[in-house]
């Protein structure tokens, strides 16, 4: 399995987009940091820090693209045959791809975490204090950490769906579209969903509602809207992730290539 993860990482690292993404991510975060420094009235430095200078939102987009391509490229390039006709079990090959993506997403989140702190100390050392209260419950630093953790769990809920779609359609375009649309759809239909949940209680278990996890971790009163407790949201997200990955596994094992 370690050999397979090494192979997947080798492929990932040799794609030109991989180093580019790290650089783009840092540039974008720096740009938002500088904006907040220059126009603190429009961009509150504290709020931007809690949102990791928009870093974690970009990571979602980059990871959606990476996950769809790690599966779909093998079909697109015809390399799936070479990848599969070896001594390894199919399941191992798929799981090695997931683990590579998990490592990649942890790397990107760690990068966002560390670089947000660097930006905070370089640009806003005296502007705000990490220990000060932010919002209703937690300190700035805790809110920042909770947002990242919540977003990470939410990210993997989306990624498990993207991995499944890439597997079914064998095309990254379809998987990327659904992933990104799904991610933004939440904001658009949030209001509608709240109404629907009030009317039909069981709808609170729908996967889009689970995406509110990071919000509710910072603002516990959101549970009045989501109708679920924070642990319920966390377990729900993990359960959906597991379900989508399990379907992927079955699809991949049965596929004739």
């Amino acid at each position: 399995m370690i050999t397979l993860i090494k192979e997947e990482s080798f492929k990932l690292l040799h794609k030109r987009s991989t180093p580019a993404i790290t650089i783009i991510l840092l540039v974008l975060m720096t740009a938002f940091g500088v904006l907040a420094k220059s126009y603190p009235k429009f961009y509150s430095p504290r709020t931007l820090f809690v949102q990791s200078f928009t870093g974690d939102s970009w990571v979602v987009l980059f990871m959606i693209a990476a996950c769809s391509s790690i599966i779909a490229m093998e079909f697109q390039y015809g390399t799936i045959k070479e990848v599969l006709y070896r001594k390894y079990y199919r399941g191992q090959i798929l799981v090695s791809k997931w683990l590579t993506m998990l490592i990649y997403s942890i790397y990107l989140f760690a990068l966002v975490f560390v670089y947000s702190l660097i930006l905070k100390f370089v640009l806003f050392n005296n502007t705000f204090d990490l220990g000060r209260k932010y919002g209703a419950e937690h300190s700035v630093f805790t809110s920042f950490s909770y947002t990242l953790i919540g977003d990470f769990v939410g990210l993997w809920l989306i990624l498990s769906l993207v991995l499944l779609l890439a597997n079914i359609f064998k095309s990254s375009a379809a998987a990327i579209s659904v992933g990104i649309i799904g991610y933004f759809a939440l904001g658009v239909i949030a209001g509608l969903m709240t109404l629907a949940i009030q009317k039909w209680n069981w709808l609170k278990w729908n996967p889009l509602n689970m995406m509110n996890l990071s919000g509710q971790m910072n603002t516990p009163s959101m549970s009045k809207v989501t109708m679920l407790s924070t642990p319920e949201l966390a377990w729900g997200s993990l359960a959906y992730t597991a379900i989508f990955l399990a379907i992927s596994y079955v699809v991949f094992k049965r596929r004739s290539v």
Binding site: K11, H14, K15, R16, M73, E74, Y77, G78, T79, I80, K81, E82, V83, Y85
Partner: peptide
């Protein structure tokens, strides 16, 4: 094995 056409990663 080589089946149908060679699978090649362009990068």
């Amino acid at each position: 094995a080589l089946i149908e056409y060679p699978g090649i990663y362009p990068f």
